[in-house]
Amino acid sequence: MKTVLIVGSAPDAARIQSIDCSSITYKVAINNAWRLRKDWDYVIYPEDFPKEKQPTSFDKNKLISAKQYVPEQNSFGGFIYAGGTMAFTTGYWVLGALKPDVIAYIGCDMVYPKNSQSHFYGTGQADPLRDDITLQSLEAKSARLLAFAKSHDCRMINLTEQNQSRLLFPKIKMSDFLNPDQLSETLKNKEPQLNSKVMDQALKKEKALSYMAPCGRYWKIIKECDPLQLKKLDSLWLETVSS
Rank of each mutant, 00 (worst) to 15 (best):
K2F: 04
L5Y: 14
A13I: 05
S18E: 08
I19K: 09
D20A: 06
C21I: 08
S22Y: 06
K27F: 13
V28R: 06
I30G: 05
A33S: 13
K38T: 14
D39E: 14
Y45G: 01
E47L: 15
D48P: 06
K51D: 09
E52W: 04
Q54H: 03
P55G: 03
P55C: 08
S57V: 12
N61M: 04
V70L: 05
E72F: 04
Q73L: 14
N74M: 07
S75Q: 10
G78T: 00
F79S: 02
T85Y: 13
M86A: 11
F88A: 02
Y92V: 03
W93H: 07
L95A: 15
A97D: 02
D101F: 03
V102L: 10
M110E: 01
Y112E: 00
N115Y: 14
F120M: 11
F120V: 10
Q125S: 14
D132Q: 13
Q136I: 07
Q136L: 04
L138K: 01
K141P: 07
K141R: 15
A143Y: 05
A149D: 14
D153A: 15
R155P: 01
R155N: 15
M156E: 03
N158D: 12
T160F: 09
Q162G: 02
N163V: 00
Q164F: 08
L167V: 00
F169R: 08
F169C: 09
P170M: 06
K173G: 11
K173S: 08
K173P: 03
M174G: 00
D176G: 01
F177H: 13
P180I: 05
P192H: 03
V198N: 05
M199D: 01
P214N: 04
R217Q: 12
Y218C: 09
I222P: 06
I222S: 15
K223T: 14
D226C: 13
P227C: 07
P227T: 12
L230S: 02
S235L: 01
T240Q: 05
V241N: 05
